[in-house]
Design a protein around this nucleic acid. Sequence first.
DNA 1: ATTTATATAGTAATGATTCCTATTACTTAT
DNA 2: ATAAGTAATAGGAATCATTACTATATAAAT
Lengths: 121, 121
Amino acid sequence: MRYSKQRELIYGIIKATSTHPTANWIYQAAREKMATISLGTVYRNLDQLALEGMIKVISEGNIARYDWNTVSHQHLRCSVCGKMSDIEIPDRQLIKSIKHSHQFDVEKIEMIFMGICSEHN
Amino acid sequence: MRYSKQRELIYGIIKATSTHPTANWIYQAAREKMATISLGTVYRNLDQLALEGMIKVISEGNIARYDWNTVSHQHLRCSVCGKMSDIEIPDRQLIKSIKHSHQFDVEKIEMIFMGICSEHN
DNA sequence: ATTTATATAGTAATGATTCCTATTACTTAT
DNA sequence: ATAAGTAATAGGAATCATTACTATATAAAT
Ligand SMILES: [Mn+2]
Ligand SMILES: [Mn+2]
Ligand SMILES: [Zn+2]
Ligand SMILES: [Zn+2]
């Protein structure tokens, strides 16, 4: 993967937000810094960054979201304001018990907790 | 929600499989019994059945899947064969601890454990 | 049987994502 | 510094899942 200023811009935009943005959100933000950047470039770079493990893809729901936080964590999503926030769920024991009960080797976990956040209850 | 033989057919198809089928899979199966059924009808009925709580929607990934099993459970997905199987994860304690640590009221949980199933490791 | 309203088939539209291709621009070697 | 080789880009077309539209059909109530 060789350098490009488009990728640097895209990665910078992701690192600067905690909103778990969509590809289109990132594209709009990128256009403000580089008017000619294309949506295809955004998608391609998001895929590459994810492949390199520099960002994570959250694929729950019909629109993919992207996350600069690559350490193991899960998400809370508020059904009122739509905000998605991080939560750490210890999963060592869980992975072990799934291995024992189902002979299934867990490699990746995606959890979404939907409900009402602290600002809306 | 008034009776229609299309909905009865669709619901029957979902109840008869454990594959967590997509809308298109259900559509293809339905066409074999009722040649003129339309994809729009399948989607509309899936939405209605979900609204009535008769089926569950699994919205991880870019394609929605449907589940006749409406009791609280989660899913394992094998990255080799693609099979999606059920797993029960006790969540009472988890919901309670999220309430305490994040003041977040969990209403719905969606967990996907990706990895290798017992037939492929 | 008549009325009323919901459901359907068929098709068009939408929205997210992927694919295609000529051009551009990093990178390495000369 | 120049050239060659190749990965990356812009822009647009194509794809795929899902939703919207609308005239017709059919369940349900009277
Ligand atoms: Mn996160
Ligand atoms: Mn299930
Ligand atoms: Zn909220
Ligand atoms: Zn498998």
